[in-house]
Design a protein around this nucleic acid. Structure first.
Length: 708
DNA sequence: GCAAGGTC
C-alpha cells in the first residue's frame, strides 16, 4: 500500500514527514525547486508514505479566446463569458510531480491548511492526481497544529473533502474575475483617449482594491474639510503640602469637554457658587500590565507575513532562554527567568500552523546596526513573553465640587517583571497624595479653560491595515498586496514622515472615488459592503444553506445592474476627473498651502467681524449684556443637548439662566470673560492633556484630538 | 493590459 500525502506548502510537508516517519526519511528532489518528496514507512499503518506539497493554488482562471483581447468583446459580456481553468504556468513542475507520484499510489491524502482556501487547493490537487490515476482513493487529514499527537491523529482518522467549502471558494474566484475584469476594462477604455495622461495606464477595479482606496480617500477628505472647534472644560487642582513642599494634583472633569461655551460657563458658574470640594470615593486596586495584549496583537512580530502568535504546548523555552544568559544587557534577566521568574507565554489568537512565533535560536553578540537592533528587539520580546506580568497598585480618587464630578488616579508599580527587559513598553509611577473619603478642601485652581480640536492625521499604513482587517477586505496574506496595488495604479502615494508611512490619495484616486459617489449606487463600489456580501454568501454555501449556482446567479445580476448604471452615467465620472486632473497641475504641496491660506483668510475675516461688532457696541458693559443675552438663549436651546443630560443639570441650568441675566457681569472673573470673548487658548491646556492622553478623544468626532 | 487568493 502506498499513500501519497500532499501539503499546501513545502514547510508543512517537511514537518509532517518528520513526525510520521520517526526519523527514517528518504528525500527526493522534484522539478519544482522548492518542493521535495519525502519517502518513509509509516509504522502505525505499516504502509509506504510519500509526502509532497504544492505552493498554494495550482490553477489559474481566465476567459477564453474571443474574450481575452480587450477589443474582442463588450466588457459587459464578461459577466456571462465562459471561464477556463488551467494549471498555472509556474506550477507545471508541481503538476508533473503530483501525476507521477499518484500513478503508483492507492490513496491520496490531502494535508492542506484547514480553511476554505485549503479545501479548494485540496480539490485542485485531487483533480490533477486523478488525471494520472482515475481510481485513487481520496482522503483528507484534519489538523490545526504541527504537534506530533495531532498529526498522528489526523493521519489515522482521515475525513472527506468538504465540497461545500470548495464550491464557496470557486464562486468567489469567478465573481472576482468577472467583476474585476469588466469594470477594469470599462474604466480603462473609457478614460484612455479622453485623458492623455492615462494613455499608458490600466485603471483597474477590484472588490478589495477599491474599498482600500476608499479608506484612503475618505480620511484625506476628513483632513481637508476639518475646521478647528473650540471646546471648554473645567480645570480643577488642589495643592497639598507633602514633605514640606507644595504638590499640585489635577483632577479631570467627568464631563470631559463641552463644545457649547454658554453651557460650560453656566456649569462653571455653579461650581464657583459652592467651590468647596469633597472627596466622594477613594478606591485602590491591584492592576497588571500584560505584554501579550499589546505585542501579540500588533502582528509585526510574527513570522513570516502569515501570522502566528501561539507557541506549541510542547515548545522548549528553557534551552533558548539559557542561551541568552551570557548577554551583557539582558543576560541577568534571562538567568532570573531560569530561577523562578518564568511564566508560560499567553496564547495569541492566530496560528498559521507552519511557524512558531519568531524567537532567537542562539545568542548573537557580534551584530551591528539594524541587524543588532532587530535581534535585540526580538530577543527582548521573547524573554518578556516568558516573564510575569508587571504588577501595580492603582488609586482612583473622585471628588465632587459644586455639583460636578472630577477624578484623578495614581499608580505605583510594585513589580516591573517583564518591563525590566522590555523597555519598549512604558508603565511608570504616577504619584497622587493621600486622600480620605469625605475629606473636603478648597481647590487651589478652579478655572474654565478652552482648547481646540486638531486636524486628524492622514491615514497611516498601520491604520489602513487595521481598517481592512476590521472590514473583511482581503486576508492576512493579501492585505499588503492590495495596498501595493493602489500604489502601483497611482491611486495613492506613500509618504514617509520619520518612521511612519502615510497614504495620500492622488487626484486620480480621489476623482475615481468621488466620481463613483456622484453616480450613486445601491452599494458603493468604494465601500466594504460588496465584499462583506461575498463573504457572507460564501459562509452560507459552506453551511449548506445555499447552492453555488444560486449565489453566482444572484451576485452576477447585482453586478450587472451596477455595471449598467456605471456605464450609463460614466460621463459624470469623466467630468469629475476632468475637473480634478486639471487641478493636478497645481502641485500637491501648493494645494495644502492653498487650503491653509483659505483657512487663515477665513479666520481673519471672522476676527474682523468681531472687532467691528465691538467697535459698534462701543462700551464694554454693553458687550457683556449682549453676551449674557445670547448665552441665555443658547443655553435654553441647548439644555436638552447636553452631553451628559440629567434632571439635576436641567434644574440647575434653568435656574441659572435667570441667575446669569441678573448677575453675570459682577460674578465672573475678568480673565474668564476675556477667554469667552476672544476665544484665546489658555496656555495650560496643553500641559493638562499631555498628562492624560487617553482623554484626547473628543465627543464630536473621534478623529479630532486635543492639541497637546 | 483585467481580480483575489494561495505560496516563495
Amino acid at each position: 500500500m502506498k499513500v501519497l500525502c500532499v501539503a499546501e506548502k513545502p514547510s508543512i510537508a517537511r514537518s509532517v514527514s518528520t513526525i510520521l516517519s520517526g526519523g527514517q526519511i528518504t528525500t527526493r528532489n522534484t522539478a519544482d525547486k522548492y518542493v521535495k518528496n519525502y519517502d518513509f514507512i509509516y509504522a502505525a499503518r505499516n504502509a509506504n508514505y510519500t509526502v509532497t506539497a504544492v505552493r498554494g493554488h495550482l490553477f489559474q482562471h481566465d476567459f477564453p479566446d474571443g474574450y481575452r483581447k480587450w477589443s474582442s468583446c463588450e466588457p459587459f459580456d464578461l459577466f456571462d463569458a465562459p471561464i477556463e481553468t488551467m494549471v498555472s504556468k509556474d506550477c507545471k513542475g508541481i503538476e508533473r510531480n503530483l501525476m507521477a507520484e499518484a500513478r503508483g499510489a492507492q490513496m491520496l491524502m490531502i494535508w492542506t491548511d484547514c480553511d476554505r482556501e485549503g479545501e479548494n487547493i485540496g480539490a485542485e490537487i485531487v483533480q490533477v492526481c486523478r488525471k494520472a490515476n482515475r481510481n485513487i482513493q481520496v482522503k483528507r487529514a484534519r489538523f490545526s497544529a504541527i504537534i506530533a499527537q495531532q498529526i498522528h491523529r489526523a493521519a489515522q482518522n482521515p475525513v472527506e473533502l468538504d465540497w461545500a467549502q470548495v464550491h464557496a471558494v470557486e464562486a468567489r474566484i469567478f465573481l472576482d474575475l468577472r467583476l474585476g475584469a469588466a469594470f477594469t476594462r470599462l474604466q480603462t477604455l473609457r478614460l484612455q483617449g479622453r485623458f492623455p495622461e492615462l494613455d499608458l495606464k490600466v485603471v483597474s477595479y477590484g472588490p478589495c482594491q477599491f474599498p482600500t482606496l476608499g479608506f484612503v480617500v475618505s480620511r484625506y477628505e476628513q483632513v481637508q474639510s476639518f475646521r478647528p472647534e473650540t471646546f471648554w472644560y473645567i480645570y480643577l487642582a488642589i495643592s497639598r503640602n507633602v514633605n514640606g513642599r507644595n504638590e499640585e494634583t489635577e483632577f479631570k472633569w467627568r464631563r470631559g469637554h463641552l463644545f457649547e461655551a454658554p453651557v460650560a460657563l453656566a456649569i462653571y458658574e455653579l461650581v464657583l457658587e459652592t467651590p468647596m470640594a469633597r472627596v466622594t470615593s477613594v478606591k485602590k486596586k491591584s492592576v497588571k500590565k500584560w505584554l501579550a495584549e499589546g505585542l501579540y496583537q500588533r502582528g509585526f512580530l510574527s513570522y513570516p507575513r502569515t501570522e502566528t502568535d501561539q507557541f506549541d504546548p510542547n515548545f522548549e523555552f528553557m534551552p533558548l532562554i539559557e542561551k541568552q544568559a551570557v548577554d551583557p544587557a539582558w543576560g541577568a534577566f534571562a538567568t532570573g527567568l531560569r530561577n523562578g521568574g518564568f511564566a508560560t507565554p499567553r496564547m495569541g489568537k492566530k496560528n498559521d500552523k507552519a511557524h512558531p512565533p519568531i524567537h532567537p535560536t542562539a545568542h548573537a553578540g557580534n551584530l551591528a546596526g539594524d541587524e543588532k537592533r532587530v535581534y535585540e528587539f526580538i530577543t527582548r520580546r521573547f524573554l518578556a513573553c516568558c516573564s510575569k506580568d508587571a504588577e501595580g497598585w492603582e488609586t482612583t480618587i473622585e471628588v465632587e465640587c459644586g455639583g460636578e464630578e472630577f477624578f484623578t488616579s495614581g499608580l505605583s508599580v510594585l513589580a516591573r517583571n517583564y518591563l525590566e527587559v522590555y523597555p519598549y513598553d512604558k508603565w511608570g509611577d504616577r504619584h497622587v497624595p493621600d486622600f480620605a473619603e469625605g475629606e473636603t478642601f478648597m481647590p487651589a485652581v478652579c478655572e474654565l479653560r478652552d482648547g481646540q480640536t486638531t486636524r486628524p492625521a492622514l491615514l497611516t499604513e498601520a491604520d489602513l491595515v487595521s481598517l481592512m482587517d476590521k472590514n473583511g477586505i482581503g486576508t492576512d496574506a493579501t492585505i499588503a498586496q492590495h495596498i501595493q496595488t493602489i500604489v502601483d495604479r497611482e491611486y495613492v502615494m506613500e509618504r514617509m514622515e520619520g518612521a511612519t508611512k502615510y497614504l495620500v490619495p492622488s487626484t486620480l484616486g480621489i476623482a475615481l472615488v468621488d466620481g463613483y459617489n456622484k453616480i450613486g449606487f445601491d452599494k458603493s463600489l468604494s465601500k466594504p459592503q460588496l465584499r462583506r456580501d461575498t463573504e457572507r454568501e460564501m459562509v452560507r454555501i459552506c453551511e449548506g444553506l445555499k447552492s453555488k449556482e444560486d449565489m453566482l446567479n444572484e451576485a452576477i445580476e447585482q453586478y450587472k445592474a451596477l455595471f449598467v448604471k456605471a456605464r450609463g452615467d460614466f460621463d459624470l465620472l469623466i467630468q469629475h476627473l476632468r475637473v480634478s486632473l486639471s487641478l493636478a497641475v497645481v502641485g500637491e504641496e501648493d494645494q495644502h498651502q492653498a487650503v491653509e491660506e483659505a483657512e487663515v483668510a477665513e479666520a481673519e475675516a471672522e476676527a474682523g467681524e468681531e472687532e467691528e461688532e465691538e467697535e459698534e457696541e462701543g462700551e464694554e458693559g454693553v458687550v457683556e449684556e449682549a453676551v449674557v443675552e445670547e448665552a441665555g438663549e443658547v443655553l435654553q436651546a441647548r439644555t436638552a443637548l447636553l452631553l451628559v443630560p440629567n434632571r439635576l443639570v436641567h434644574r440647575r441650568l434653568s435656574r441659572l439662566t435667570t441667575l446669569m441675566k441678573a448677575s453675570y457681569a459682577t460674578r465672573l472673573s475678568i480673565p474668564l470673560h476675556a477667554n469667552l470673548m476672544r476665544q484665546n487658548s489658555s496656555t495650560s491646556v496643553s500641559s493638562l492633556h499631555a498628562n492624560h492622553p487617553r482623554d484626547q478623544h473628543l465627543q464630536r468626532n473621534p478623529l479630532h484630538r486635543v492639541r497637546g
